[in-house]
Amino acid sequence: MSTAQTLARLPRATVEFANLILTTPDATIGATPRDVVWTHRQTTLYRYRSTRREHPIPLLLVFALINRPEVFDLRPGNSFVEYLLGEGYDVYLVDWGVPDEADSDMGLAAFVCDELHWAIRETLRSAGRDEVSLVGWCIGGTLCAMYCALYPDSGVRNAVLLTTPIDPSSSLYTRWVGSDDFDVDLIADSYESIPGSGVDWANKLMKPVTNYVTTYRRLLQGALDGKDQRIAYQSMAKWVADNPPFPGRAYREWITWMYKENRLVSGRLSLRGRRVDLGKIEQNLLVVTAGADHIAPPDGTVPLLSLVASQDVTHLDRPGGHIGLMAGSKAKHEIWPELARWLGERSDL
C-alpha cells in the first residue's frame, strides 16, 4: 500500500477503530442456549441444550475465579461448547457468578468442597449417570486437581486440565506477590472482595506493551487493511474486560498457599482438615500446556505429571498463549479436536 493510499484510508480506519472499541460492550458472547440446573449462593450450574448426546459421560466445564466462564462459549462459530455439543457431548458448566463482599468468607475449601462437589453431584443427578468428566481451565484446573485429590471416588472418570498452575514457583506472579513486600492480608482485609479490575490490571502488566499498545496498533492496522475483525476482536475484548471480584478469603489463600508457600505441589495444602495429596489423583488425566503461556507457564504445570497416581496420563504441549490456545481462531482446528478425541476414547460406558 502506497503512502498516499494509507493516508487516504486513515480517516475511515480511525472511525472504524473507534467504533470497534466503543461498541465492544454490545458484543454477544456466551450465546449457546442453556438451562439452569442448580444454584447455590453465586454459583450456577448450567446444562447446554443439545439434540445429539452420543457420549454417555457428561462433561463439566470449570473455569477460573477470575474472568467469566463465557470464554468456553465465546462466539457462534468459535465456541468450545458449541464444538463439544457438535461432537455429541452432554455439556455442563459451573459458573462461579459475580461474588461480592458478602461472599468474602468463601475460601478455596468452599469452592472445592462445597460448590464444585455439589455441582458434580447435581451434574450426575441431572444426567442420570454415575461418572463425569471434568474440564478445568487455569485456576479452574487447579480446583479440579484439588477436587480429584480429595475425592478420588466421587465419580470423576476423566480430568482435563488446561493451562493450570500447579507449581508456580518460577512464575512472574511469584516474584510479584510471593515476597514479603506484598502484604496479601492487608489487601484482603481492606477490600474483602478483590476488585476484578485490579486483577486484570496486574495480568495485563505482565506484558504491558503487548496488552496496552500492540493490541490496539494491530486493530488499527487491520482497519487500514480492510480486515473484518469486528466479531473476533469484540467478543474477546468483551470477555477480557469482564472481571468479577475475587472473594477475599479465596484470594488470600490462593496467593499465600500457591505463591508464597507453594503448598500444593509440596503436599502441604489442606482443605477442611484434609490434605490435598496430588498423588491420590487416579482419574484418566489430560494435561494441556501452552508454550507461550506467561500466566501459567508449562514449567509450573508439568510437575503434576510425575505426582499423580493415574495410569492414563497424557500431556499435550502446544504453541499458544494462556487463553489463545483454547479460545484463539486456530483452536477449533487444532486443540479442540485433540481434546474431543481424547475424551471420546474415554467417555463411553
Binding site: P33, D35, V37, R47, R49, S50, T51, R52, R53, E54, P56, D90, E122, R125, S126, A127, G128
Partner: peptide, 14 residues
Amino acid sequence: SPRRTAAPDNGASS
C-alpha cells in the same frame, strides 16, 4: 432416582 427427571440421551431435554 434423580432429583429431577433425567434428560433422555437424545437431547430431547431441550
